[in-house]
Amino acid sequence: MLELRLVQGSLLKKVLEAIRELVNDANFDCSATGFSLQAMDSSHVALVALLLRSEGFEHYRCDRNISMGMSLNNMAKMLRCAGNDDIITVKGDDGSDTVTFMFESPTQDKISDFEMKLMDIDSEHLGIPEAEYHAIVRMPSAEFARICKDLSSIGDTVVISVTKEGVKFSTKGDIGTANIVCRQNSSVDKPEEATTVEMNEPVSLTFALRYMNSFTKATPLSNQVTISLSNELPVVVEYKIAEMGYVRFYLAPKIEE
């Protein structure tokens, strides 16, 4: 028996919109810790890890660990039927091949339930080792989204370089080149507008912009994005979900031959 009641149902809607471009089908894992997912894109270049901690739900009942395979497109179709202010409850029974999403309007005058078929998904769970990152950049998520979108009209890849000066995003394509430098500005009044750069060692890595742009679908989840970089390791692009957890995207770099 599984019953998860999320008062801020819009969070689940935003989570689905954030990951469904990258991953088609995935197993949602439910345990005492929370509601989580780990999945790779079909080319095994990127990985998404989601955690919604049990404490973030108004009601969280999960009698035993359960894994539910879902088509993210179908799940998004159902969640789009929930209002942005609706309370969403996810219900499942042991051994059932369906999951139910219940939507309650804030005034309780409209209650809907949508039953979705589950699917069997073979997925490999990967161990993600703890890593010391050479550089950690925190910046407004909307700014990062803007940069990825702008650069993808010039080139296909982005070189992200971190130095004492700040973080530089560069691309080149048939029509020319582009460089965008963001400097630290932690003195701004509003913390959500701050850009901070923690650097232990200079880093410069190349990534496919197509994936970066896909990660920025998570922008509505958080005002800030954290980009953790180490030479020749996957970059981690993290969007925190207030008081609940996170969506983390891992992207393997492109290596010079």
Binding site: H44, T157, A252, I255
Partner: peptide, 14 residues
């Protein structure tokens, strides 16, 4: 040319 690495060359199956 840049070669795209796979995520599987960094993270092992758990």
């Amino acid at each position: 040319m840049n070669r795209q690495k796979s995520i599987l060359s960094f993270f092992q199956k758990a």
